[in-house]
Nucleic acid binder design. Structure first.
Lengths: 136, 136
DNA sequence: AAAAGGACGCTCTTTAAAAGCATTGAGCCA
DNA sequence: TGGCTCAATGCTTTTAAAGAGCGTCCTTTT
């Protein structure tokens, strides 16, 4: 995931885009809201306008570089799209997000869609709850 | 689902609340946004203020009378809570929503949560796609 | 190196949702 | 049943996330 990807998406390679991509790669939390990306770049000399962050993230989403999630809580969060589909567990206490993938569930979803004459293009499975103290 | 439920929720039985509940019961679409509820009551002599619709729906949600869903598309939708949990298939072409329930998936979710030391309090599974012409 | 069009930053706008406040009305009790 | 109290309503204003408009700047391409 580097400037080559930006170019292949038909976008010019600019400092804001490079920085935003890097933040998404290196941030400890792998799921960031637009505001969080913005704040992460505030320290950095040469901050990026919030409007640009929104614009770039939407462009990255369209280009397939990142995935936008609409979890509960109003703010959308973004993560790099590594091509490997996964679902999410969201801790309502700490905000921690853990990814998982389960082929049994995936297969059932495909079966159910088929039974209903439904052509699946995407799906979202989110588990809400709380991690044990030890895990959080 | 009637005025008794409203009262048991600790809310006064008022015309707006009764009307909103009835709309949710009788509307052909079982998933309505706040705006849709509002518009459904516009014909009706004695319209209800939009602010009241938002307020009442949130109160109903807190009281456990309705469930709020954050599907893609910005607007939250509401449905009566009949106590029977189910998931959703959302047609991206027509907006049609079909409910389903699958015990295999439910069980897998519980197993996965357990494996991760995660106490499940809620979950959302939404399949996005398109229904066949015949079904839509 | 220069031309051309996309990208940036700033500000303003949009939209869903909720808050504030004065008025109205439900519900309880004498 | 009539009145009293506090919750509920309607109207307006506000908030927050997200995006649009526009003038200037900077990538990119030749």
């Amino acid at each position: 995931m580097n400037s080559k990807d930006i170019k292949q998406a038909g976008l010019k390679v600019t400092l804001p885009r490079t920085k935003i991509l890097k933040i998404l790669e290196t941030a400890s939390a792998h799921h960031l809201s637009a505001e969080e990306v913005y704040r992460a770049l505030l320290d950095d000399e040469g901050a990026i306008a919030l409007a640009t962050v929104y614009r770039v993230l939407t462009q990255f989403e369209t280009a397939g570089l990142v995935i936008r999630h609409n979890f509960e809580g109003g703010q959308a969060v973004f993560e790099l799209d590594d091509g490997k589909h996964h679902d999410h567990m969201v801790c309502l206490r700490t905000g921690k997000i853990v990814e998982f993938h389960d082929e049994i569930i995936e297969q059932r979803q495909r079966d159910i869609a088929k039974q209903h004459g439904f052509t699946l293009s995407d799906h979202a499975l989110i588990l809400y709850g709380e991690f044990d103290e030890t895990n959080s």
